[in-house]
Design a protein around this nucleic acid. Structure first.
Length: 109
DNA sequence: CGGCTGACTCTGG
DNA sequence: TCCAGAGCCAGCC
């Protein structure tokens, strides 16, 4: 019913809205965001975030891959920033720079 | 309208 | 645990 209104907007816009639902101190995988957003796949989420602009208030740093690690995009400088932002929010990394999805994933399967 | 690109996920070895 | 390949689809030129 009200779903029709959301369907009119670009898929990227809906993905951003889902990411904004993730509270501080929690993370989510691309697959979870894709499934919750609906009508899109994990890749769409990643590509949507890649198209993000500085003027958007989207906590893109809280989105990671299903392995619990940060995807090495661009030259890699963004990954270091993302890791630092997550630590600043209280997310803990293990020695392999991986996050415990069982503890920090906001959406659970 | 056709082709290229890309922050993913899963299976097998 | 790490590496490689295949499947997948919305934007943009």
């Amino acid at each position: 019913m009200s779903q029709d209104l959301e369907t009119q907007e670009p898929i990227y816009q809906r993905i951003y809205a889902t990411v904004c639902q993730i509270p501080s101190g929690r993370v989510a995988t691309y697959g979870q965001v894709a499934r919750i957003t609906g009508g899109c796949t994990a890749r769409m989420v990643g590509y949507a975030l890649a198209a993000l602009k500085e003027g958007m208030d989207v906590p893109w740093q809280r989105v990671i891959n299903f392995k619990g690690k940060i995807s090495p995009h661009g030259l890699g400088y963004g990954s270091a920033l993302q890791r630092q932002l997550l630590i600043d929010e209280g997310i803990l990394f293990d020695e392999k720079e991986r996050i415990d999805l069982e503890k920090f994933s906001y959406f659970f399967d």
